[in-house]
Design a binder for these strands. Structure first.
Lengths: 224, 224
DNA sequence: TGCTGCTTTCGTCATTAAACGTAGTGTCAT
DNA sequence: ATGACACTACGTTTAATGACGAAAGCAGCA
């Protein structure tokens, strides 16, 4: 989920959408005038929204306003965005890609010679994959950056390298709202009971493979 | 952030809001007819939205629709909501309380004979504390339930029992948006390097105490 | 075959959002 | 005080929303 959706959602659900628009405009430190100039409309329009004369703004207006705030901030160097989004893409993500259609999880697991440690079945479909360095991700990702693991669809496999007991990755998944379709540990030292238990609770298959990350990357990117 | 805002945000930002409305209506397994009946409007209105004849629905319409979907699901027992929100209150929280004013962290750590394992100073203040069973919390809390650890203020100490290496609790904190003022491990087996590193990165003092949970509970509740 | 339930399409109408522009208030630095 | 800037208030226009209801297209199914 990106920041635009978060702001738009807040505005839409708020008792008073206008006030919420104002809150975010001020948060971004954009004057009504600047916003109006950017959108090439009259400043009074912004005032009308915020004061509540326009009681139920349409999604197009909201989208325009929210996008404008974000884009203005980006032009200024993205200072505000960084507070919410903080950080740049890191080197924790080794490979990430999305497919344009469903791919059978069972087939993928067969191709990477995976062993299922959980009691969750493999008859589901994925639309993307992410290969991530477990330790680096934990150390370098802030909360909101975890959503980067999910690319365009949360219906995906996440591969973790640098796994010792396998607890950390499953706990990160447990605590985070987005859940992958499957988790694969790449050459882990061993698999802790808690990791398996968490996988079962979350209804996420927990797979182990002895192939290495480059090999997996090659296989996954060649699919379809 | 609750689910209504998430859905509303998605609808608003989507290229095609109507399709996104449909997606969520189907996700909730509500027919256009049921939704229309609940909102006491004609089914054709829903169809008009979803088909895109109404290109820029206002926030009131969206709010009504989103709330209706959630309320209908609740009436049916909240099956879909649980997938996103999952879980009931648990017995993982041993004690939780809030103070009506600031209390010096340094003083608290002295009273519980704590040792600071991190390089973060103790000159800060807390407004509450939570004592939680680390394992049970991880197993029974869904994402949104983690906020229960924070009571009224996130300016608080969180005590964890049942700690082995001390990685899991810090990872949970790392991944979650709310951050406590300090973390205390109650009689851990040992302290892993990664736990300390995470505490430093998060700027949260990581303390260890050899007192047991009931003793801590007594001390913390007697404060002021 | 015909019924029932779900959905779509469309013509129509009242209301209101979306925009303008002008006029006006308040607050600063100069 | 004289701009410059940020915002508010309001009257006005037009295009679109929000709603209806009727008709008709598809399913499944007894």
């Amino acid at each position: 989920m990106d920041i635009q959706e978060k702001i738009a959602g807040e505005i839409t659900i708020a008792e008073n959408p206008g006030e919420t628009i104002r809150k975010w405009r001020e948060e971004f430190q954009v004057s009504q005038l600047d916003l109006a100039r950017y959108l090439e409309i009259s400043p009074s329009v912004i005032s009308d929204y915020e004061s509540g004369r326009r009681k139920s703004p349409g999604v197009t207006s909201i989208r325009k306003i929210v996008n404008a705030l974000v884009e203005i901030d980006l032009k200024r160097g993205g200072q505000v965005l960084r507070r919410y989004n903080s950080g740049m893409p890191s080197d924790a993500i080794i490979d990430i890609s999305d497919y344009s259609h469903d791919i059978s999880l069972e087939r993928v697991i067969r191709m990477i010679s995976g062993t299922n440690y959980s009691s969750i079945g493999l008859n589901r479909y994925i639309r993307g994959y992410t290969i991530v360095d477990g330790i680096k991700a934990i150390l370098s990702f802030s909360y909101s950056e975890y959503s980067k693991l999910y690319g365009w669809s949360s219906q995906r496999i996440i591969f973790f390298t640098e796994v010792k007991l396998g607890r950390s990755p499953m706990i990160a998944i447990r605590v985070h709202p987005l859940k992958p379709a499957a988790v694969v540990y790449i050459q882990p030292d061993r698999i802790d009971d808690l990791a398996v238990k968490l996988a079962d609770v979350e209804n996420i298959p927990l797979i182990v493979t002895e192939l290495d990350a480059p090999a997996i990357s090659k296989i996954m990117s060649s699919l379809k």
